[in-house]
């Protein structure tokens, strides 16, 4: 079987599967499609104290009223009860989500964190502290991003702004100093880049730092990359290189040094303004096709 045949067959099969898969996926929920009313009932039936129950229900209402999707509220309550989280924490999750939405901060990252914490079995206290911590960092991040847009960095429509706030918050969580983040913003402005380039740059800094690189080294690397006119795609390649090398068993020091050297030699750079650098590798695309 040639590569092309495999991929064509896969396409056909996948196309047939698509509608079903998508529909099924859209309908599925661990809650089994539980409604908010059913979740409320579960709270009432639980063995929590009367006060705690009331608190959870109040916070749930507040969250939904603020705009938190009821599906997420249901998941939080359902998973919370199932995993034995204490009532105060469940109320705390709902309250954190409500607060974030009320303040118009990006809500998805906070919900993701709570939901995965519950699924992973992390102790409720820790989830709550991590969720609240993220909420605070989001609040700190927003003015930084707003200021950048105000001072001339190109905004992007849709969720790009929220993405930027989220990545700045993550970077702050990894102890990337505020100055480094703002410096990165300056560099993006110099390059006449957009907020999404900024978000990518900050994301890369945070990823490097989270993998063990010293925060100042991470900042310098990314800022140098921006100076050289790296695109979002180039930055993604930098991340991939980092993890490839780490997987090969290299130490972080070696990896960082390697990147610094390669950057000086312009190896990582796909070339500014090269057309088609960002294409998805479609089926049968020859060189770029999936390798098996």
């Amino acid at each position: 079987m040639t590569k092309r045949m495999t991929t064509t067959l896969s396409s056909l099969a996948a196309a047939a599967v698509v509608t079903f898969a998508v529909a099924a996926w859209a309908a599925a929920g661990e809650t089994g499609g539980k409604t908010l009313d059913e979740a409320r009932l579960a709270v009432e039936k639980s063995s929590l104290t009367k006060d705690t129950k009331r608190e959870i229900l109040t916070k749930a209402d507040r969250a939904v009223k603020a705009g938190v999707p009821s599906e997420d509220a249901v998941i939080i309550i359902d998973r919370g009860l199932k995993h034995g989280a204490d009532g105060k924490s469940i109320a705390g999750f709902l309250e954190t989500a409500a607060t974030v939405k009320e303040r118009d901060l990006p809500m998805r990252p906070v919900l993701n964190r709570i939901e995965q914490g519950l699924s992973k079995g992390v102790p409720a206290e820790r989830i709550l502290s991590a969720a609240r911590g993220l909420a605070e960092k989001l609040a700190t991040a927003r003015p930084i991003v707003n200021d950048l847009v105000r001072s001339g960095v190109q905004p992007v429509p849709g969720g790009g702004h929220d993405d930027a706030i989220e990545t700045v918050a993550r970077a702050l969580e990894k102890s990337i100093p505020g100055n480094a983040i703002m410096r990165t913003g300056e560099k993006v402005k110099e390059q006449k880049g957009s907020i999404s380039l900024f978000a990518k740059a900050v994301d890369t800094m945070a990823t490097f730092a989270a993998s063990g690189m010293a925060t100042d080294r991470a900042s310098r690397l990314v800022q140098a990359a921006l100076d050289k006119g790296y695109s979002e795609r180039d930055l993604e390649k930098m991340e991939k290189t980092l993890f490839d090398d780490l997987k090969k068993g290299r130490s972080m020091d070696e990896v960082a040094e390697g990147m610094e050297n390669r950057m000086n030699r312009n190896d990582l750079h796909e070339g500014r303004g090269r057309i088609g650098g960002d294409q998805m590798r479609g089926p049968g695309a020859g060189m770029g096709g999936p390798r098996r």
Partner: peptide, 25 residues
């Protein structure tokens, strides 16, 4: 719980574990 060794990039999940990350353009 296993992080995908084949992911292109990773992210800390806020609890000290590594999530794999998928980017769809």
């Amino acid at each position: 719980w296993v992080t995908d060794p084949r992911a292109e990039t990773y992210r800390d999940d806020g609890f000290g574990y590594n999530n794999s990350v998928l980017r769809i353009k």
